[in-house]
Structures are given as structure tokens and as C-alpha cells.
Simulated assay, not measured.
Amino acid sequence: MFFFFIGGVNQQVRQVLKSGVGRCIGCGSRSDLVEYEKVLNLFFIPIKRWPGKEPVMYCDDCKLFFPQSISPPPPPPSVEETRLPSVTDVLKCHYCSREVDADFRFCPFCGSAL
């Protein structure tokens, strides 16, 4: 006598608590805070369901469940943050607050180092 078990346990979203609150750790797309439940399937028929312990993050694109404690990667820096000052920028003297060309190493008005 042989017995084959064709089934398994998987997770399913029960309720979306907050939509788009984080980023997926797998693909980087938006993820939702959800309540989930575990489902026991036998021959692809749900037999038993029981709720998960605490809310988790869920990515709808790659179908990944992950805990809230894993923080998503930080967003990339904006263009303004990555821009380096150019040589043609106008400088201001720290002492007299006058505008000085970037070519000067000393303020021509008060003589202080720039």
C-alpha cells in the first residue's frame, strides 16, 4: 500500500492594511502592509486556514512576503544632492558676506581667507 500526499502549505493575503507603505526587498517595487493567512491545500483544494501572527509586507509584483523589521533600501539620491559645485559658482565671504569670484583665495573687500 502506498500513500502519496499531494498538497502543501502556502500564504495568502487576507486583508490589506496600508497600501504602498514601503519598498520590496526583492524587486524594489511598492509593497503593502497586509494581514495574511496560512492555507493547507490537498490536491489544490484549501482544507484548513489559520491567521498569521503579525502583519507583514507583501509585494504584489513578485509575490514576496517579508517582515516589517527588514527595512527597505533607501531611495536613490536626487539630482540636486549629487550635483557637485562648479568652478563658475559665485562664492560669498564668510566675514563680510559679499559675493566674490571663485578664482579668488582671499576676499578682495576684507582680506579674509575664503
Rank of each mutant, 00 (worst) to 15 (best):
E37V: 08
I70P: 05
D89A: 12
L114I: 08
D103T: 14
F2K: 15
E37L: 09
R98L: 01
V13Y: 05
G52Q: 04
R98D: 00
C96K: 03
R98S: 00
I25V: 12
P85K: 14
C24W: 12
C24T: 00
F106R: 14
R83C: 12
R83P: 04
F3S: 13
Q11T: 11
G26I: 11
C107E: 01
R83K: 06
L42Y: 06
Q12P: 09
R105N: 08
P51S: 02
E80Q: 01
S31R: 14
C96F: 08
G111C: 08
C62H: 02
I6N: 11
E35D: 02
C93A: 03
Q11G: 09
Q68P: 00
L42P: 04
K63G: 00
C59I: 08
I6S: 04
N10L: 13
S19N: 10
C59P: 01
D101N: 13
C27I: 09
V16N: 03
C107W: 10
K48F: 00
S69A: 10
R14M: 12
I70G: 00
C24P: 02
E80R: 15
N41Y: 11
P74A: 02
D89M: 14
Q68T: 02
M57Y: 05
S71G: 07
F106T: 06
I6T: 12
L33D: 01
V9K: 15
F5D: 11
R83H: 03
L64I: 14
V87Q: 11
S29W: 03
C27W: 09
Q12G: 03
L84P: 07
N10M: 11
F3I: 15
L84H: 09
V13P: 00
S78D: 12
F2M: 11
K48I: 14
V87L: 13
S31G: 01
I45N: 06
L42S: 06
Y58H: 15
E35N: 07
M1D: 07
K63S: 03
P51H: 11
P67E: 06
P75Y: 02
P108L: 03
S78I: 06
K48N: 07
L84S: 13
A102Y: 10
K48Q: 13
P75S: 15
F104I: 09
I70T: 04
G111Q: 12
L40S: 02
P75E: 04
S31P: 04
G8V: 12
M1P: 04
C110G: 00
K63P: 02
K53W: 11
C62I: 07
E35W: 12
V21W: 03
V34Q: 09
C59A: 01
F109P: 00
I47R: 03
G8M: 05
K38V: 08
F43P: 07
K18M: 08
Q15T: 07
K92D: 01
L33R: 15
I47N: 01
P77E: 02
P73M: 06
P46Y: 10
E35T: 06
P85C: 01
F65I: 08
K48H: 12
N10A: 11
K63Q: 09
D103I: 13
